[in-house]
Design a binder for these strands. Structure first.
Lengths: 195, 195
DNA sequence: CGTCACGGCTAATGTTCATTAGCTAACGTG
DNA sequence: CACGTTAGCTAATGAACATTAGCCGTGACG
């Protein structure tokens, strides 16, 4: 079986719980049942593990975003789907998203630059989504940039506190947060009674 | 002059930029113009620096929150003021807020427990604010917890990207984000034309 | 049945740190 | 003008860590 997949999974958990710097190769080895030096049969370096996780994550996130907005032109629906994809990814892949957001500092060039570029691209995509809705008069915001940042930040938050076995199903969460996003841009479609 | 204040300031910048683990006592010393060992004339340990920063920050945040909601009983106004205080604090003390949010992992007991308790208290306060508005019918949310998390997350986001010399004044930001918060709980008071 | 690559191990290396020891210059106080 | 205290320094200490070297059992394949 692919030992690298195990290492990657263990690294996700450790990087999330202790952080990249505080995670030792011995920790990582122990988590997959081997000694630190043996890890080097599967990865180039600790930095390599982080870099692979982070680039894959950002690429994936960008991909789900593109898929989400691919099949409709309506600004409201585009933003809804993009937010759904955003929140769903941050819930379903919360460790990846968590590490991806928090450990950019630990990433070294050239990986750092690449990941930051992907992230800018992702942010720009949301900004354009909001802009489009403003242009059609569907959205009403004082600042496109602030509104899109706010929506993006919601996803990051989810990655921090969401638990698969927690109080909320992924769908409940996704649906609720999309509503929040539409509320933020002033495109509320319906009001919900308290539960 | 109080050398500790300088050290604290330098530590804030370094912990934000590189992270606690990646910051060395030599870095910190260099930032205030002394060698690493000399720092120990002013602080007990590296952990001590972090602990002092984090407890002070959480205590302060709780204090501004209490002041913000102290003088009105109207749920809408209470949430608005709490959000304003929240966002304003995260903008004005962005380094403190950033470190306070991100370095809990690096904090060791008993500080960690204390800071987490303060944070729970803060979160609970927001939850109660939303709950009160739902009770009076001013707010309309499917889940009090999700809505209050979403609002709290907005502040965290601000601490990440806000720059004092950036595009937005503190007031613009605070005002906009409070609007977002009220939108999130379905208590929108006005719509704003695009800028 | 030999052999070779794979994937593990222990031991060693060299570095980086936080922190401690112990020295000293400056300075305020009597 | 002694003198102790403050706040800096260099040197030392001891631990932790990423990574490399080199060894060995196992199992696939000829």
């Amino acid at each position: 079986m692919d030992r690298f997949a195990d290492i990657r999974t263990a690294a996700l958990e450790l990087f999330t719980r202790k952080g990249y710097e505080a995670t030792t190769m011995a920790d990582l080895g122990a988590a997959v049942g081997m000694r630190a030096p043996s890890l080097y049969k599967h990865v180039d370096s600790k930095q390599d593990v982080l870099a692979r996780i982070m680039t894959a994550t950002m690429t994936e996130l960008l991909a789900v975003h593109r898929t989400a907005v691919a099949t409709t032109a309506d600004p409201v629906e585009r933003l809804r789907r993009a937010t759904e994809a955003h929140v769903r990814y941050h819930a379903r892949h919360r460790l990846e998203a968590f590490v991806g957001n928090r450990e950019i500092r630990a990433l070294v060039e050239p990986h750092r630059g690449r990941v930051l570029a992907l992230r800018s691209e992702y942010e720009a995509a949301f900004r354009e989504l909001v802009e489009a809705g403003v242009a059609t008069g569907d959205f009403h915001v004082a600042s496109v940039k602030l509104a899109s940042y706010a929506i993006l930040d919601l996803g990051m938050g989810v990655a921090v506190w969401y638990r698969e076995d927690g109080e909320y199903s992924e769908d409940t969460l996704v649906w609720q947060y999309s509503e929040f996003a539409l509320n933020i841009v002033g495109a509320a479609t319906r009001q919900v009674e308290p539960s």
